[in-house]
Amino acid sequence: MDVLSDVIAGMRIGRPHSMRVTWQAPWGQRFAVMPGSAGFQVILQGSCWLIPDTGEPVQLHVGDVLFFPHGHGYALADSPSTPIPDWVCEPGDDIELFASASAGGSGAVTATLCGGYRLDRANGHPILRELPETIHLPARLGERRELRAAVDLLAAEIANPGLGADTVVASLLDTLLLYILRAYLDLESEYCEAGGWAAALADPGISAALEAVHRDPAHPWTVASLAGLAGLSRAAFARRFAALVGQPPLGYLTWWRLNLASRLLRSTDAPLSEVARRVGYGSEFAFANAFKRAFGTPPGRFRREACPLAPALAR
């Protein structure tokens, strides 16, 4: 998998959820702080205002996308002057994958597509930690056509679900998340100069090294071999990688291997020796020691605690 695909695969846990809401003015709605979650809003029809917990209101138009990667609270309203009710929209544990609803008065209509994802914060990729509290992607004619297409398909499926709707909606929600992150990173890469993941993924050499690590984490990578892929000298590559990514090349490689191992332990019944082999360790002993250093617990216990109802697994 490539870097961004790996980020998506590793960050989301459980089922996402989504809802198409038709609002009629006057209306206002507060959305709860959701630790461990990320949420989005897309304006499908009409216009409204984002009322953040801090800062000035922002007017939103058809096609605008909002993404809240850290689950911060906010409000939406037909006007900045509309009172926001005390009642907070807070999805429960049994929320549906997709639904439709209507609310408000009898005035001008605004339609929104909202939804959310539960995230694995403990093992989340550093890309997520760099994201701001709110990402606003304004609609611009001719730009981000793939993102708009995903929004249109998702909205149409929720409005008129057909056979296999659960699979279609779940896949489109993941696709929407990927396009949101891609659009944001593309925008950031145009302006970032000091460093960060947007700059790392936009740098041809560093990006090539990262792609190699993610596509084949079990390969016996060295700084020299990764530098060769980047087209840089060993010293120049190590300096540039650390400056952009925030840690040395082999430090990131080890972190990613063990992060991937934790995912395999939670989601598969592969023996520990197989997990070790798949993430690049020559022996189960070496893997167990490295895993315990990183997670504070041996991999076997980690698996039992993560999956308490799972049967005992052979080593």
Rank of each mutant, 00 (worst) to 15 (best):
P52V: 00
R15N: 12
H125V: 13
A108S: 11
R12G: 02
H61E: 12
P69L: 09
L76H: 12
P57V: 00
H17P: 07
S18Y: 00
S106T: 15
R30L: 08
G142W: 03
C48D: 05
A9I: 09
L128G: 06
A99Y: 08
R15S: 13
Q29V: 12
A108C: 12
F98A: 12
P35Y: 03
T82H: 10
I135S: 03
A38N: 08
D120H: 04
G73K: 02
V21I: 00
Y117C: 09
H136E: 08
P35W: 10
M11V: 15
F98D: 04
P26K: 04
V42W: 13
Q29K: 13
Q29A: 13
G63Q: 06
V42Y: 14
G71F: 04
C114V: 15
Q29M: 12
G55S: 07
V21S: 07
P52I: 10
G14R: 02
Y74F: 04
I8E: 08
H17S: 09
Y117H: 13
A25K: 08
W23E: 11
I135Y: 03
A101W: 06
I135H: 00
G36D: 03
V62E: 01
P132Q: 04
E143F: 05
N123A: 14
G73Q: 02
W87M: 15
F67N: 08
P16H: 09
Y117W: 13
D53M: 00
S47Y: 07
I84D: 01
R144Y: 06
V21W: 02
Q24S: 09
W49P: 03
I95C: 09
T134F: 02
S37Q: 04
V65C: 07
S106Y: 14
W87P: 15
V88S: 10
G116K: 08
A122C: 11
T82K: 05
S102N: 09
L66Y: 00
S100V: 15
R121C: 08
D78E: 03
S81L: 10
L131A: 11
A122V: 05
C114Y: 03
H72L: 08
D86T: 15
V33M: 00
A122G: 07
Q29T: 08
P80Y: 02
G55T: 04
H61L: 13
F98I: 12
I51M: 01
G142M: 02
E90K: 04
E90G: 15
E56G: 02
A9S: 03
P80S: 01
I51F: 00
A111S: 14
A75S: 14
P138N: 08
P138D: 04
D64W: 14
V42N: 14
D64R: 06
S81Y: 12
C89H: 09
A103L: 12
F31D: 07
A9R: 08
P83R: 13
R15F: 07
W49C: 02
G28C: 03
D64P: 05
S102L: 04
L141D: 10
G55K: 01
G104W: 03
I84K: 10
R129A: 15
Q59F: 09
D93A: 14
A103S: 15
F31I: 01
N123L: 15
I13R: 09
Q59M: 00
L141M: 10
A103R: 15
R144G: 10
D64Q: 11
H72F: 02
P126H: 06
